[in-house]
Design a protein around this nucleic acid. Structure first.
Lengths: 232, 232
DNA sequence: ACTACGGTTGAATCCTGAA
DNA sequence: GTTCAGGATTCAACCGTAG
């Protein structure tokens, strides 16, 4: 079985750093991912029984090792888009700039209230996404601004503690990839990147270290595919 | 003449790194500044006769040396707010985090078009402002988000190539300082910080290495003070 | 009060040629 | 080889005016 049959269109449970070894050089059209931020995040901290456990590999900076692989996997003139917070941005930027040309940082203005230090800090109601170019990846849509207003996923609908809305991933895919492009997300989580690929006609490879989330991702994708087929 | 008589309410022309030596420890309530980004920026490059010359000290990273002094000058429980671009942010953050607790990064969404790499990059229509705390500086206004929509200064009204709107500086002052606070801007430029202080009842110290801009700043402040008095 | 239209501009980047 | 300076590029958002 070759790597394409093995990976494309499947959620593979496992450590992405190991799995990526089985993908040859210059074979991926884009990487879109939301790695663990290395902050050992515990969602719903105030709640007696938090809805989600802590994330695997969120207590270290192992994402930097994978960034070093991104350059090898990507084709020329393509991008890696990596989400991060304003507290991580500096470290992710300095790691990515070793291998890539960073042409933009998208500000995802998600709005809504916010927790944190109520007396001494403003609400951090945005996240950032570094657009790291290998070569010169052209934008496909019209040239737009870098501050994107997209509402966050309603907490009651969340199946993953750091879930991104499908819409913002679709917008990234439509700006930086063509139809049928092969998109990798090594930190798939609940499968948003794969769902966004299905919705926009891209092929995808998903990796997720947590078997429980890998299963949830598969369910989410299956649901999307089923829904999609209803309308064919 | 003591340092207060020397500096407060005056624009001092000179190198801030030298001038700051004459200000004692823990005597400043806030620093709000927009340092040269180290990019040797030339505004209106397409124009036959650009309106502004290049900025002094914009061809190096001397701002980092001044950041090291900020901690000494600030009182406990106060902030330094430093503007930067998404390309500088990582380096400014890593410098400031040595001395400060960074609790927020404000996104100034300024809107407008944008030049640059039209085919491969989105429009960068925002700048960032790092809010670096010495201790715990309380917010004074209501707790708001971090993405601030403020229009930029109309090009025809600009007296400095990287001029910030007075409104955004006022908003920073009102969030992080009390009335009568003493505010330092070591890179005063055309005097926006001082004007914002006058408008909001803060005392100020302004330093500017370029004598021409120091003079322009004085004019801008004088105009504001005169206008203010008309309405008393 | 609104919309429509024309003119202006941008903390840029690419490319080329000179030094 | 490398660095630096100057010219060309290009479009969405904004302002000001007119209707």
């Amino acid at each position: 079985m070759n790597w394409q049959e093995l990976f494309i269109g499947h959620v593979t449970a496992g450590d992405c750093l190991q799995l990526m070894r089985d993908i040859p050089d210059s074979s991926i059209d884009a990487i879109v991912t939301d790695p663990p931020y290395g902050i050992n995040y515990q969602s719903h901290k105030r709640t007696a029984s938090p809805m989600f456990d802590r994330l695997q590999n969120d207590d270290n900076d192992s994402r930097f090792e994978t960034y070093a692989q991104f350059n090898r996997l990507l084709k020329d003139n393509s991008v890696a888009v990596c989400f991060c917070s304003f507290k991580n941005y500096a470290y992710d930027y300095i790691e990515l700039i070793k291998y890539f040309d960073i042409k933009n940082t998208i500000i995802w203005h998600k709005g809504g209230g916010g927790i944190g230090d109520l007396k001494h800090s403003l609400v951090t109601d945005y996240e950032m996404a570094i657009v790291a170019h290998k070569g010169n990846c052209p934008i496909r849509g019209k040239r737009e601004g870098s501050v994107w207003e997209v509402g966050k996923v309603f907490a009651g609908d969340m199946v993953h503690p750091t879930e991104k809305p499908t819409g913002i991933i679709m917008r990234i895919l439509e700006q930086f990839t063509d139809r049928d492009a092969l998109v990798l997300d090594p930190y798939l989580g609940s499968g948003t990147t794969a769902v966004a690929c299905e919705k926009t006609g891209r092929r995808w490879i998903g990796m997720e270290i947590d078997e429980q989330y890998a299963r949830i991702a598969q369910e989410q994708i299956a649901r999307e595919v089923a829904q999609g087929k209803l309308f064919v």
